[in-house]
Design a protein around this nucleic acid. Sequence first.
DNA 1: GTCGTGACTAGCC
DNA 2: CGGCTAGCCACGA
Length: 106
Amino acid sequence: MSAKKSSLSFREKVWSATKKIPQGKIATYAAIARMIKNPHSARAVGNALNANPFAPVVPCHRVVRADGSIGGFALGSKKKIALLRSEGIQIVNGKVASLQKYLFIK
DNA sequence: GTCGTGACTAGCC
DNA sequence: CGGCTAGCCACGA
């Protein structure tokens, strides 16, 4: 089989996968790791987004923790909640309501 | 080549 | 319900 080589760094893949998240939907760090074929790098995914220089370019605010908690945000978790709400996501107690309902997993 | 750090996760009390 | 621990991976110094 033609094994494709990963020319892009791990971070590049993370940003690429995150950019694919449709508006109104969200994904977990583990889900992103799954998209890039690194299901065991959920932690590394967070690191990638933290170093993400494309803050407004990549919908990093659509990425939350596996338990629905907001996790973190370079511009402030408060801002993240505001953005999610603006997309139709219900946030309760700093957590996503019906996380599964909004999850975007391929 | 080794060490420390972090926007993670699951388990245990 | 909350708090702590251990395991996991990628990156920079």
